[in-house]
């Protein structure tokens, strides 16, 4: 168990340093390239006509923008550590509250999408992995590469056209009832399933071809017993490892799908604040997405450590 705790600490350290680097780069980029931030804030707050020099100076002093960059950076980091991300330039709401509100929706959507993708990918991938190289496997592989080529917003559009406009089964967009969740979750889920079913299929096929799997049959175990005892855990290791790659994919997809379906999650918030140049919100959203991303990676690594004794062994000996 000691190794596992040590591994968590290493990951946390790595994750925090990455998050800090990203946040710092974001801070520098915003402050060095964005011209006069105080002017932007003043315009956003008091409209362009009222933002004369006197108002801009007032804003500058009020927001601490007259300090040297290093002092500003320290203040900014200090505020982040106390979870104070400032206020939105547009709505004047605290960024932390905004993030929590929108994260709730993204969490719902992502969970539903992962559930959908598992529902599709598990049986599909297992079937392909049991008969690798067969007709079903070939056709599935073609379907998957076709699905991967279709942008997610096109998949979403086709679903809207078919299920919402033609058949009236689900609402087109919005967030007022659980029915609104169905189409965006399917859209995201299909894209994830197309890739993960292939990962499941190849890793299962590889395990089934390995000597220890065939040795299980030689021992006299039934095919079902061999599959449950030697197949599932071995095949799941690459699948779980791949989740960290999929997390990036999911986050990208969240932005597009939330925009398409007007789902008020983090992606939509990020896009809206980018279009409105609402810098505190952009920074906050990026920080949150970074933290989420690191959290997913740490979780995936931990699950892999639990699943795979070889990895634990390497950790213990290194």
């Amino acid at each position: 168990m000691g190794q596992v705790v040590r591994s968590i600490c290493t990951h946390l350290f790595q994750g925090i340093s990455v998050a800090l680097i990203v946040a710092t780069l974001g801070f520098l980029a915003v402050n060095l390239t964005r011209g006069d931030t105080a002017l932007d804030i003043a315009i956003a707050r008091y409209s362009e006509d009222l933002a004369d020099e006197r108002v801009v100076e007032l804003v500058r002093r009020e927001e601490g923008l007259d300090q040297p960059l290093f002092v500003q950076y320290c203040q900014w980091v200090g505020r982040i550590l106390t979870l104070d991300l400032g206020r939105s330039l547009v709505s004047r709401e605290p960024v932390t509250a905004l993030l929590i509100h929108h994260f709730h929706y993204t969490f719902l959507l992502a969970t539903a999408a992962i559930a959908v993708s598992l529902l599709i990918a598990l049986p599909w991938g297992v079937l392909c992995g049991i008969y690798p190289g067969g007709t079903f496997d070939h056709i599935s592989s073609m379907i998957c590469s076709a699905l991967v080529s279709v942008p997610q917003f096109v998949i979403g559009l086709l679903l809207i056209l078919a299920l919402a406009i033609r058949l009236h089964w689900f609402p087109v967009a919005g967030f007022f009832s659980p029915a609104h969740l169905v189409l965006p979750a399917i859209t995201l889920g299909i894209g994830l399933a197309a890739v993960s079913s292939r990962v499941i299929a190849t890793s299962l096929a590889e395990v089934r071809g390995s000597l220890f799997y065939r040795f299980g049959a030689m021992k006299g175990l039934s095919p079902f017993r061999v599959f449950t005892a030697h197949g599932i855990r071995n095949a799941s290791i690459p699948v779980v490892t791949y989740i960290s790659v999929q997390a990036a994919h999911l986050l990208d997809g969240v932005v597009v799908v939330e925009t398409l379906f007007a789902w008020p999650g983090l992606g939509k918030l990020l896009l809206d604040s980018v279009l409105a140049r609402d810098i505190p919100v952009i920074q906050g959203a990026c920080l949150l997405i970074g933290i989420l991303y690191v959290a997913v990676n740490i979780t995936v690594d931990l699950i892999c450590l639990v699943l795979d004794p070889r990895r634990r062994n390497r950790l213990a000996t290194s």
């Binding site: 974001g26 980029a29 915003v30 390239t33 964005r34 990036a248 994919h249 986050l251 990208d252 932005v255 597009v256 990020l270 896009l271 604040s273 980018v274 140049r277 810098i279 952009i282 990026c286 997405i289 991303y293």
Partner: peptide, 12 residues
Amino acid sequence: PGIILALLIAGV
């Protein structure tokens, strides 16, 4: 994630 990085850069 690529699109999010693009959004971030577009924001800057």
